[in-house]
């Protein structure tokens, strides 16, 4: 090896430890340590919340807790009517926002020309995502509850949630469609396929994982929202037949987990201290479960990627 450090002007031989190299290595280690610390700082509160909730709420949670209505001024009993209400709100809302969002995204990504109209639409979608939920709540109240005369109901609340979470699914779908290489589309057009044939046979099947992720993200957002449904269809208390999945109708008002959590925390006196934590644990575990499903689906589809 050449080790003549006599003239520092010539570039040093590789692997020879000199102050500059050592400083660079030290900087590298420091940078890595800083970033890793940030990851820990980010994870700590998340884990803290989860552990705290589960530890305090778990003793109350049982099958019975999930399947009986609240009773005695919500100081006893379970969360059945709230749990089923959340499921109804999410499902009904999804029935509107998922098809509309996905199809609108397909239009915007696959058909629309780049002109002022599409630019306005894109801007609207981006801004809709940033509108505070209280504004959506007021819109839902004005539009669905009053103007369209739906009254405070599952339908009105679901539509409000649908409007609010639409940008999530539109954005995710557009990203998924954009990830399908343009060369696939061109190859299809070259052999005389129409746009729709191309979309149906090539683009959509290969964008499914991204679209599903968007839809599932939407589900967890819908399940967690409180304000929009409070104004448009959720109530503090309602007893429904236990064990009947169709105990609600679209025109009914319903309970919801997120709102129930608010109620038992702030409005009810004499409830066991563990009750709010139990409700929160159920809500969070449900959302984690939904997101885990999304990750699993994605991983599966990724491993079956076709190119």
């Amino acid at each position: 090896m050449n080790s003549t450090p006599s003239s520092p002007a010539t570039s040093p031989a590789p692997f020879v430890s000199n102050p500059r190299v050592r400083r660079k290595l030290r900087q590298e280690r420091i940078a890595q340590a800083v970033f890793a610390t940030m990851v820990v700082l980010m994870l700590l509160p998340l884990l803290g919340i989860l552990v705290y909730l589960v530890v305090r709420g778990a003793p109350l949670i049982s099958w019975e807790f999930l399947t009986t209505n609240p009773s005695k001024g919500m100081t006893a009993g379970g969360i059945w009517s709230a749990l089923l209400g959340t499921v109804w709100l999410v499902v009904v809302s999804l029935a509107f926002s998922a098809p509309i969002g996905v199809l609108a995204a397909v239009y915007l990504n696959e058909y629309a020309k780049d002109n002022w109209f599409t630019r306005v639409v894109n801007l609207a979608v981006v801004n809709l995502a940033g509108v505070p939920s209280i504004v959506h709540a007021l819109f839902g109240l004005g539009a669905f509850v009053l103007f369209f005369g739906m009254g405070r109901s599952i339908l009105a609340a679901s539509l409000t949630l649908a409007v609010m979470t639409m940008p999530v699914v539109i954005t995710a779908t557009r990203e998924a469609l954009g990830a399908v290489p343009m060369s696939f589309r061109e190859a299809c057009w070259n052999v005389g396929a129409t746009r729709w044939q191309t979309i149906r046979r090539i683009v959509l099947p290969n964008a499914v994982s991204g679209i599903l992720t968007g839809v599932i993200l939407e589900i967890s957002r819908k399940a967690g929202e409180t304000v929009p449904i409070m104004f448009t269809g959720a109530v503090f208390f309602r007893a429904i037949p236990e064990g009947d999945l169709f105990a609600y109708r679209l025109t009914d008002q319903c309970m919801a987990l997120s709102m129930h959590l608010y109620t038992v925390t702030t409005q009810v006196t004499g409830a066991p201290a563990a009750l709010p934590f139990a409700v929160a644990t159920v809500l969070i575990l449900a959302i984690i479960l939904i997101n885990a499903t999304s990750i699993a689906i994605r991983a599966w589809l990724r491993s079956h990627r076709k190119w």
Binding site: S183, E186, C188, V191, G192, A193
Partner: peptide, 29 residues
């Protein structure tokens, strides 16, 4: 018109389909 003209692009493009379906794609369309 496009079916009357076969087009081969500079970079090979296998569609994300089976070999059979790649060739059967256009006739099916």
């Amino acid at each position: 018109l496009r079916r009357k003209i076969g087009m081969v692009a500079p970079l090979p493009v296998g569609l994300p389909l089976t070999i059979y379906d790649n060739v059967a794609f256009a006739p099916r369309c």
